[in-house]
Design a protein around this nucleic acid. Structure first.
Length: 460
RNA sequence: GGCUGGGUGGCAGAGGGGUUAUGCAGCGGCCUGCAAAGCCGUGUACGCCGGUUCAAAUCCGACCCCAGCCUCCA
């Protein structure tokens, strides 16, 4: 029985899909005006893990992750760069796909782009106006009338009075209420726009997701996800819009992933403390980033640091080391570990416990000694199978262990040459030369291991 | 100020009324020419103050501290 924490009820609840065996998920994706950072990576990886796990449980999953390709930041950035909006968004969508692919993230089944749904957006806004939830403001923009929607603030645990008391909402003359938010923004003469009943303009951010999710998954669907910061106002507004337009419940379960932090502060553009995925990939293997992120619970904050990434690399190397040289292709699985794995994953996707379990399996393999024994092969197959559900341990062990980013100044051939020289020295009992050659490699991040089958190497 | 979530050993990070988390680092040992890897053993812990209980890191209450949201944000 799968239990998932629902932000709306602030508790774990049993997951019951609307249609048995089928799951529909919508996740708020990326606004494409810059490279993705590690925070985006966490969102991508968390929901990748969720869909992978649901599929491993034989659910037929439809995973939708949108792209916001029209918005003020995009317009401004295109203007700064002196390029067209399409050129800018195409460029960063390609970059996003490149980064996501590198991290082994399975592409969503449907990836709607806001600009492809203008008709649906306009239709939904019209519906909201006719249903009495929206109005045309003094400046020609269309606004959502928050006071008309009962339960506004329920998802984020806020009430309208508190929000007003916060007084951080910008006062805008055109609105009836400072809390009202824009659905359709009139275009200034030099801005892009689409024709609409309210003149040329573009959609507000929130309405995009309402229109795209309803169009791709239906008026009510199973899971809606996104980063924690989207709870308010974005998801709150989505609920108000979709329910206002359809008169039906919107989603059954809200999932929000925690943030990546740097020095105990949220990683963000405004703080200037963000690291892009591609920058981090220069120093660490993609699987290390995945392992790092899955090493904590998806709702917990997670601190990014060089030390933590290094540790993730070491821990993952331990797992790969355990299955090194074991042929596991024909072996069966250890059902006790499989059952335990599902037990922890069914508790709100406790990937940290799952990773702990992988370490326990690795330890069992190491204890087994003879790595061609039936027991070792069964455990290795289990380790690889369970790791695979998390998107881990699918590489060849020697490939992972040798393809680290340290010691990249020395080629495999050079390493092998030094190993050969050292073997010669060793056979002549010239240990001081042998040690000197080994130290030389260690200085370049290459670790040698003398085994019964000869000397093998890996990157530290 | 309001609303959420949290404070765990040297570090990271789970768990969550009585039984080893796990990983990294440390220490002792085995193995090794020496290492590495691995194995065995080992230490350090649950913010503070009360309460409930045979028993509290775990439940309850107060307090202190931190983070997130309340504005664009994954």
């Amino acid at each position: 029985m799968l239990n998932i924490y629902n932000t709306l009820s602030r508790s774990k609840q049993e997951f019951k899909p609307m249609q048995p065996g089928k799951v529909s998920i919508y996740v708020c994706g990326i606004t494409v005006y810059d490279y993705c950072h590690l925070g985006h990576a966490r969102m991508l990886l968390v929901f990748d893990m969720v869909t992978r796990y649901l599929r491993a449980c034989d659910y037929d999953v439809t995973y939708v992750r949108n792209i916001t390709d029209i918005d003020d930041k995009i317009i401004n950035r295109a203007r700064e760069n002196n390029e067209t909006i399409t050129a800018l968004t195409d460029r960063f969508i390609a970059a996003m796909n490149q980064d996501a692919d590198a991290l082994g993230i399975i592409r969503p089944d449907i990836e709607p782009r806001a600009t492809g749904f203008i008709a649906q957006i306009i239709a939904m806004i019209s519906k909201l106006i006719s249903n009495g939830y929206a109005y045309v403001g003094a400046n020609g923009d269309v606004f959502y009338d928050v006071s008309q929607f009962e339960g506004y603030g329920k998802l984020s645990g806020k009430n309208i009075e508190d929000l007003r008391a916060g007084e951080r909402v910008e006062i805008q003359e055109a609105k009836n209420d400072p809390l009202d938010f824009v659905l359709w923004k009139s275009a200034k003469p030099d801005e892009p726009g689409w024709e609409s009943p309210w003149g040329a303009g573009r959609p507000g951010w929130h309405i995009e997701c309402s229109a795209m999710s309803v169009d791709t998954l239906g008026e009510t669907f199973d899971i809606h996800g996104g980063g924690q910061d989207l709870q308010f106002p974005h998801h709150e507004n989505e609920i108000a819009q979709t329910c206002g337009a359809t008169g039906k419940p919107f989603v059954n379960l809200w999932m929000h992933n925690g943030f990546i932090r740097v020095d105990d502060e949220k990683m963000s553009k405004s703080l200037g403390n963000f690291f892009t995925i591609r920058d981090v990939l220069k120093a660490y293997q993609p699987e290390v980033i995945r392992f790092f992120i899955l090493s904590s619970h998806y709702r917990s904050p997670l601190n990014y640091s060089d030390a933590n990434l290094k540790e993730a690399r070491t821990a993952l190397a331990r797992l790969y080391t355990a299955i090194r040289d074991i042929t596991d292709d024909t072996a069966t699985h250890d059902q006790a570990f499989i059952a335990k794995f599902h037990e922890v994953m069914e508790d709100d996707f406790n990937t940290r416990e799952a990773v702990t379990l992988l370490h326990e399996i690795a330890h069992e393999i190491n204890k087994a000694g003879d790595n061609q024994s039936e027991r070792a092969r069964t455990l290795a197959a289990t380790l690889r199978y369970l790791g695979g559900i998390l998107g881990l341990l699918q590489d060849k062990p020697e490939n992972f262990l040798q393809s680290g980013k340290t010691g990249s100044g020395v080629t495999n051939d050079q390493i092998q040459q030094l190993i050969d020289e050292r073997a010669m020295a060793k056979s002549q009992k010239n240990f001081s030369l042998a040690d000197q050659l080994r130290d030389q490699l260690v200085g370049q991040g290459i670790i040698l291991e003398d085994t019964s089958k000869g000397t093998i190497w890996r990157r530290s």
